[in-house]
Write a protein that binds this DNA or RNA. Structure first.
Length: 300
DNA sequence: AATACGTGGAG
DNA sequence: TCTCCAAGTAT
């Protein structure tokens, strides 16, 4: 299907040109985008950016790479150190998976982040998005890099709806593949540029269409910017959930370097049943290590 | 396919 | 204040 789509003057080619020019002029300067940063830096950033905003990632990212400049540096440390360094980025299982991925890289890839998409996908914590992102951002390959930003940009620009589906679909993936420029280098630039457009202009809440480089080509805008129609998005409550309890427990364990008596953890949460469940869950996830004499610590 | 999984800033 | 939501993955 490609040939017609990519002729000069075709709708997609025009879209590509507009977004790429906009990116060249408006891209944020981010440390993992420095060409000298390398694949490991890209990989660390991608793990941290899974569901966590750029602003909160920045300081943790800097400290992480300073301390563990190569996968082998991280792999040589206990997983608990990764959890501690993860600080308050949220979803600390990502820290554990990044640590496990670093070990896998040492064992299976000689300590170098693999450039093969399938090899990336086989690493702990690397899913379809992250594998494509590393392959594209770090190695300049041609992949559809489909995150929430890209899904939203494509939903609006091409499908003409206000919001993408609540969860990623195969249709999203197909659409992204269809929209991917044929040329490898252009595809890699498009991947990061379309994501950046979603992050800065084509935002979820209040899109800045007045500043958008493709507003004249956007199917949603051309349709009169119709409001979102679809199932209501379930606003997840956090107060009172096991997640909150886990967060509190882990915060205590992160702050203590040695063994923590269970009594100190008990102070985190009133409800005994829920507290025990949360602690058991942390142990089951490998985020906490139980010790003799009713003590706990981060995994070694 | 639906659900679990943290945290905190912005509007 | 309170809701929304931020470069997803694993089960």
């Amino acid at each position: 299907m490609g040939s017609v789509l990519y002729q000069s003057g075709s709708p997609l080619a025009s879209l590509h040109t507009s977004v790429l020019e906009w990116y060249d002029a408006n891209a944020r300067v981010l440390p993992w985008r420095d060409p000298a940063a390398g694949p490991w830096a890209v990989m660390v950033s991608e793990f941290m950016l899974q569901q966590t905003p750029v602003a909160r990632v920045l300081p943790a990212y800097q400290r992480w790479l300073e301390r563990w400049p190569k996968p082998a540096d991280l792999a040589a440390e206990p997983p608990g150190e990764a959890v501690r360094a993860w600080d308050r980025l949220g979803y600390p299982r990502r820290a554990l998976r990044l640590h496990a991925a670093a070990q896998a890289i040492v064992e299976r890839h000689g300590g170098e982040v693999p450039d093969d998409h399938a090899a990336l996908l086989a690493l702990p914590g690397v899913g379809t998005y992250t594998a494509a992102a590393i392959a594209s951002f770090a190695f300049g390959q041609r992949h559809a890099v489909v995150d929430t930003n890209v899904r939203r940009v494509l939903a609006r620009a091409l499908t003409g709806v206000a919001q993408p589906t609540i969860s990623p679909t195969a249709a999203d993936q197909r659409l992204a593949v269809t929209a991917l420029p044929e040329d490898v280098r252009t595809a890699a630039r498009w991947a990061v540029a379309s994501m950046e457009l979603g992050a800065l202009i084509c935002t979820a809440r209040t899109p800045r269409c007045g500043d958008c480089p493709i507003r004249s080509q956007c199917a949603w805008v051309l349709a009169g910017s119709p409001p979102y129609e679809g199932p209501p998005r379930k606003g997840q409550t956090y107060e009172g959930t096991d997640r909150q309890v886990r967060g509190r427990l882990l915060a205590v364990l992160r702050s203590e370097h040695g063994a923590v008596p269970k009594k100190a953890l008990d102070a985190c949460w009133q409800d005994h049943v829920q507290r025990e469940r949360a602690l058991d869950g942390l142990v089951a996830d490998g985020l906490v290590e139980p010790l003799p004499r009713n003590q706990y610590r981060l995994p070694t």
